[in-house]
Design a protein around this nucleic acid. Structure first.
Length: 576
DNA sequence: CGGACAAGCTGA
DNA sequence: CAGCTTGTCCGG
């Protein structure tokens, strides 16, 4: 027998044919991991096709060794599709779908599954009657009942946005009597079948031989997208996988993405139920403040709101003491004399250029004054202000201090990291939510709403005292309106219209091309540029490709030869 | 990717 | 022209 294989070598995109020695024949199927000798060296490879017609011209070599089980044939085909969809290389996707170590044999499937106990969401059950549906599950609702609804159909594949959430969910399911495999560590258990498979984004590629349903939790979460190229998105992979398998796909989120809403009908709880499952949103609109009240990062009203009982988390995505300073005498902005970038004040004293690293004393380069005021204060400065206003100790927390234990102080100021690290917070306050609402990114609104949903999950339902506070000068912003009414749907029509107006996804498909070889790639793309594909750029050595659909975009990318040299193609860029 | 081989450069 | 570097090609 002759088989096709894809070598596990990054730069090789070709498939090769090898002879399967008779003694290996029973162990070779599509997806099987083997070792081959290619151009004189031993490399790993995946079998991608059986019984291929051997090319007569070349002498075929035998497969050197069968390493063990790999992804199933349907997942190999899914990887082929994803290689096209995200313009990536097959080996990297097959690697994600493969077990962490060699798997020689699968364990026997445990028979006689014990009865499960636990609540089943009727809403989810109804949504699972559709081929693909979106379930808008409020932030404080437990997704367990949703997963249970999928498991009622048989073995479910469940994708969560983080490893910790997947681990927690798997443990809870196990406790309720379900057969569960955690991907990727329990790859073998999953491959044997007869269980529900749970994992983070890579679980979209997990083995699940008798898959009956696919569930994506927090489908809006950007962690579902791989940051390295190919930038595949687990939601999209899950949708395609379920479609190919003919099983229902359920996309769950408190704030469904426009991408999800385009994939299937929306199912929601009643208005009252949904409203009850969001916390109270306090909008501190500073646009009307005048005089001394308007100065400083903490308004009087915010300070009053923070004088509650229980843990308070203040979020400000600016580290240090001040990221932007201005002279109080001549109003000149403090910039770096070497590179011209704005200088920041990280601790006491010295100004620091975060672009070129130059340090200098706190002196205005324009008039020589030593009196500079923080125009954009950082968390260190805010913590100092809060200490003075609240008359109590205030801790500072950043991603860098992440492994540190939870600080004993009641009030904690930090970057977005606090939303992950303070599970007991009763109040979350965003000190400068305009930084999110006005962020120069096309997904800013969805990202801002997702941030509020995350905060909502942390502080809990309004009836339990959950409260989220935002300081802003855009008190009537659509995102705030949606959360005030606990109705994320309010953002959808307007947001879709804005995206359509500017030809942004999901009403178009985008790709960013960068790297040393980007110029050559863009040039050859322009030669045969297909109708509908816009090539914009270059800007900073990167090109932006835009097409009306992924079919047009990905076909154009696939038809363009890949030049030698470093080239990064990011399909569906999140930060733009 | 990494080995093979060809083309290009240098020094005697 | 040997001996070395650099670049390009290709693998079953």
């Amino acid at each position: 027998m002759v088989v096709s294989v894809v070598p596990d070598v990054t730069a090789i995109t070709k498939e090769f044919d090898y002879v399967v020695p008779p003694e290996m024949r029973d162990h070779v199927r599509v997806g099987t991991m083997v070792r081959i000798s290619l151009a004189g060296r031993r490399v790993g490879a995946w079998v991608t096709a059986l019984n291929v017609e051997p090319p007569s011209a070349v002498a075929l070599r035998p497969i050197a060794k069968v390493t063990g089980w790999g992804p199933s044939a349907d997942v190999v085909e899914l990887a082929r599709w994803a290689a096209w969809r995200w313009c990536g290389r097959l080996p990297s996707l097959l690697g994600t779908a493969s077990p962490p170590g060699a798997v020689v044999a699968l364990p026997p499937v445990p028979g006689g599954r014990p009865p499960m106990s636990g609540p089943v969401s009727e809403l989810a059950a109804a949504a699972l009657a559709q081929p693909c549906a979106v379930l808008r599950l409020p932030p404080t609702e437990d997704p367990l009942a949703v997963v249970m609804a999928a498991m009622a159909l048989g073995d479910a594949l469940v994708v969560a946005p983080s490893v910790s959430m997947a681990r927690l969910l798997a443990a809870r399911l196990k406790r309720s009597g379900a057969a569960v495999a955690l991907h990727p560590s329990q790859w073998v258990v999953a491959a044997a079948g007869g269980c529900t498979v749970v994992g983070a984004r890579a679980a979209a590629w997990a083995p699940c031989p008798s898959m009956a349903a696919v569930v994506v939790l927090d489908e809006h979460d950007e962690a579902l997208q791989e940051e390295r190229s190919p930038t595949w998105n687990a939601r999209e992979v899950a949708i395609e996988r379920a479609r190919r398998a003919g099983v229902p796909c359920l996309l769950v989120s408190p704030c469904p993405s426009l991408e999800a809403l385009a994939a299937g009908p929306l199912v929601t709880a009643s208005r009252n139920e949904e409203r009850a499952a969001w916390p109270i949103l306090d909008v501190v609109d500073r646009s009307r403040e005048t005089g001394t009240a308007a100065v400083g990062p903490v308004s009087e009203r915010l300070a009053r709101l923070l004088r509650t009982d229980g843990r308070v988390a203040c979020v400000l995505n600016r580290t240090g003491r001040a990221v932007l300073l201005a002279c109080t005498v001549c109003q000149h902005l403090a910039t770096c004399e070497r590179c011209g970038a704005a200088v920041a004040q990280d601790g006491e004293g010295m100004l620091h250029c975060r672009r070129c690293g130059l340090m200098r004393p706190v002196v205005c380069t324009s008039c020589g004054s030593t009196r500079l005021r923080a125009r954009k204060p950082g968390i260190e400065r805010v913590a100092a202000d809060l200490r003075a206003m609240l008359q109590e100790p205030v801790a500072v927390l950043t991603a860098g201090t992440s492994e540190a234990p939870v600080p004993p102080e009641r009030v904690v100021v930090g970057t977005e990291a606090v939303l992950h690290q303070l599970p007991d917070a009763r109040v979350v306050a965003f000190l400068d939510f305009d930084a999110e609402l006005l962020a120069p990114r096309y997904r800013a609104n969805e990202q801002a709403l997702a941030l509020l949903a995350r905060a909502a999950r942390l502080v809990g339902r309004r009836a339990d005292g959950g409260r989220v506070v935002v300081q802003t000068r855009n008190g009537r912003h659509d995102v705030l309106d949606a959360v005030l009414n606990a109705d994320p749907g309010r953002l959808v029509a307007g947001e879709r219209a804005r995206r359509a107006e500017l030809s942004f996804p999901p009403l178009s498909a985008l790709a960013v091309v960068s790297g040393a070889a980007a110029a050559e790639f863009a040039k050859s793309l322009l030669v045969g540029v297909p109708a509908g594909v816009d090539v914009l750029g270059p800007s900073d050595g990167t090109w932006l490709l835009r097409a009306p659909s992924h079919r047009v975009l990905c076909d154009a990318l696939a038809a363009t030869p890949r030049p030698a040299g470093r080239l990064r193609i990011e399909v569906d860029p999140l930060r733009l």
